[in-house]
């Protein structure tokens, strides 16, 4: 790599650099796992602290957790429907919380303080592997949801309302994970890049609006991903009223 012409400690920018770990003959992106462990650790800490002593009159963190729970419940119930949403609530909720904390963690935690030999820490969702992994999980789960609830009748969905829809529905099965993963990946990476570019050009104050906008986008992206995942599952388990 050509060294940067100007090296500010917090405003360096590396794109597409990975910290490779060798596991057997597999190579993985170490920085993604490191930051995702931090994110998961934060999430689990919050959850464990908040649900230690559940009371009928909630106090402290329990309020936050219950708020999150009802928020996710309403989201899942609205998208999946009254009958099946309970089975998928944990999955949808985990997607939402994980993406949300990843995005905000990427924006709020000063990762640059930690020097890596190669690559840089950031939001795990700014790596295509993470988003594709989650999008494929969503695909698997809506197939599983549809097949387990309706059996082979699930495939009637492909020819409804008319058989003309068949090719489009098949294409949809590919575009769904593609759009899910690239939307999240693109938004988060673009946000990080914009903030980094602005910070690189003008280190003070100027990046702040972009940072706030980035926080907003991050939250919206988490919501969009979870809502779409729930919506796909809901479509798969939806019973046509004949």
């Amino acid at each position: 790599m050509v060294p940067m012409p100007l090296t500010l400690p917090f405003a360096e920018l590396e794109v597409g650099q990975q910290l490779y770990w060798q596991l057997g003959n597999l190579r993985v992106h170490g920085q993604v796992f490191l930051s995702s462990w931090v994110v998961i650790g934060a999430l689990l800490t919050l959850v464990v602290l908040g649900s230690r002593k559940m009371q009928r009159e909630p106090r402290g963190l329990q309020n936050l957790l219950e708020y999150l729970w009802t928020y996710i419940r309403d989201l899942a119930r609205e998208q999946i429907g009254e009958k099946a949403y309970r089975d998928w609530l944990p999955f949808i909720g985990t997607l939402f919380l994980f993406i949300f904390v990843c995005n905000w963690g990427g924006a709020l935690i000063p990762w640059k303080i930690i020097e890596l030999p190669n690559g840089e820490l950031g939001a795990p969702t700014a790596d295509i592997n993470t988003t594709v992994a989650m999008a494929l999980l969503v695909s698997l789960s809506y197939f599983y949801a549809g097949l387990s609830r309706k059996g082979l009748r699930y495939f009637e969905y492909y020819v409804e309302p008319t058989p003309i829809m068949l090719p489009f529905k098949i294409i949809e099965d590919f575009t769904k994970p593609l759009s899910l993963s690239f939307r999240l990946f693109g938004n988060i990476l673009a946000d990080e890049l914009v903030v980094a570019v602005l910070a690189f050009l003008v280190p003070l104050f100027v990046p702040l609006p972009a940072m706030f906008l980035g926080l907003f986008t991050s939250a919206i992206q988490a919501l969009i991903f979870a809502t779409l995942a729930a919506n796909y599952i809901g479509e798969a388990v939806h019973e046509e009223s004949h």
Partner: peptide, 16 residues
């Protein structure tokens, strides 16, 4: 690179 898909993907899926 940006679109570098490798074993991170399945491991991340397992992690999720």
């Amino acid at each position: 690179g940006l679109f570098d898909l490798d074993a991170t993907l399945p491991l991340m899926a397992v992690q999720v």
